[in-house]
Design a protein around this nucleic acid. Structure first.
Length: 237
DNA sequence: AAAGTCCTCAACCGCCTGGCC
DNA sequence: CGGCCAGGCGGTTGAGGACTT
């Protein structure tokens, strides 16, 4: 049995308070990121290091762009997901100001359903799945946002393991491996050839630096993602 | 107005990886 | 080479809120 990352007895869990946020921000502004294991004690926080890291990366970082995803961001996520599968950190690395958690949540709550409603299998980005049936009664949730025009996953799936296991197939994408393992004959359009995996957003220096580091990490994949400059981000429209 | 249903997203969990000794 | 540790990642959970009945 792996030992826990920290002494759970002495740590807070759940939502962060404003005071905790302030402590974390103040500490990182003074000392910078890093050494997450010792940070909580040094900063006077009753949290485990992982929790601090997550809070900072997903919520407190000053370079985060919060709010709705733009259409070009949506398109880019879809394209990248078709290439990379559920590699959320890589996908987020190409979206300035977005975190892997945010991209993952947005995919699961909006984009996955959007694709399904277009008859596209979000697992492998192929045409041919039958659209989900609309809820039996007209329901506002079936049209909650501009990006999710359709039916919802029954909430029972959350609680009912039998149903959940079926729906898990939708959640666990293997698009990346699909592309590696077999030719995606029906992939639409030919994503590997026509993608423009860039986004025209002015990037603050700090973000650019993060991106640069990220790009360095993903060097092998980056090679695959170098596309000729295409003026458009048109996909599935 | 109350109860029920469903969605969103912040946060947690456990595994994996790479660096160091 | 093998073990340990810290950081990173993807999957999952659940509280809170929006909305319907």
């Amino acid at each position: 049995m792996r030992k826990p990352c920290c002494d759970k007895q002495d740590t807070n869990k759940g939502a962060w308070s404003k005071q905790e946020d302030e402590k974390l921000i103040n500490y990182i502004q003074k000392h910078g990121e890093g050494c997450w294991r010792t940070l909580p004690q040094a900063a006077g926080l009753l949290r485990c290091g992982k929790s601090c890291r997550l809070r900072w990366i997903n919520y407190l970082r000053p370079d985060l762009k919060r709010g709705n995803f733009a259409e070009d961001e949506e398109d880019l996520i879809i394209k990248l997901h078709a290439l990379l599968g559920n590699r959320w950190s890589l996908i987020a690395g190409r979206l300035p100001g977005r975190t892997d958690n945010e991209v993952k949540n947005y995919w699961n709550s909006h984009l996955r359903r959007k694709l399904m409603n277009m008859g596209i299998d979000p697992k492998n980005h192929r045409l041919g799945i039958t659209k989900l049936p609309r809820p039996q009664s007209p329901h506002k949730y079936s049209n909650t946002s501009a990006t999710s025009s359709g039916s919802k996953v029954p909430a029972a799936n959350k609680k009912n393991p039998a149903v959940k296991s079926r729906c898990d197939n939708d959640q666990v994408s293997d698009a990346g491996s699909c592309l590696e393992d077999e030719p995606c004959g029906q992939l639409i359009p030919d994503l590997n050839l026509n993608l423009d995996l860039t986004i025209n957003i002015s990037v603050p220096n700090s973000v650019a630096k993060v991106e640069e580091e990220q790009n360095h990490k993903e060097c092998n994949i980056s090679k695959d993602l170098e596309f000729s400059p295409s003026p458009t981000l048109v996909l599935f429209r």
